[in-house]
Amino acid sequence: MLLSLGVICLVCSALLAVVYQFTKDPIDAATVAKTNKAIAEVVPAFDNVPSEEVSEVELDGTSYKVYTAKSAGQVVGYAVESSAVGFGGPINVMVGFDAATGAIYNTSVISHSETPGLGAKITDAAGHFREQFLGLNPRTFSLKVKKDGGDIDAITASTISSRAFTSAVAAAYNVFLSLNSGETDAESGASKPAETVADNQNNEEESNE
């Protein structure tokens, strides 16, 4: 009786081991492809493979992944992976910066668990919320939602999600600044930071999201 159950378990786990071996590499490749796609969305055109030029940057006790995009050997932009706590869980975003101007090039949401139809609108590339970040230079713009005294219009009824997304972008910008202040390389042309954007991560409770 136990023997037959044992045999079944053994056969099944052997079968799984085989399938796992076959799918392991494609799954890894799919994950890398996803990261590359997110990077390609947020930085100017490049010709290297940014997922292979990754560095870890420590800032305020958190470590961020920074991908460098190059075109013909020149650095054209940086993509910073950043996250913040949203309404339904962590929101992970990829924020791209234009190396020439020091402005945000574009943003992309990697994963989130916000409410569909409300907070999930942060993924809407065509919506007003995400569009307001395009080409912004946070030096001249306060990366906070208007409710907190900043310049970002929050999504209606989704203040917490909007705030989390904004603070993730702000954190990414601080990483980008620390990246440049460490470099003496003037040809990257990015603006030298004077002040860092205040981290406006805020867990204040709200009745609406």
Partner: peptide, 10 residues
Amino acid sequence: QKQFTFGGES
């Protein structure tokens, strides 16, 4: 499997 955000950090 899932990350939680109880108490701030995920």
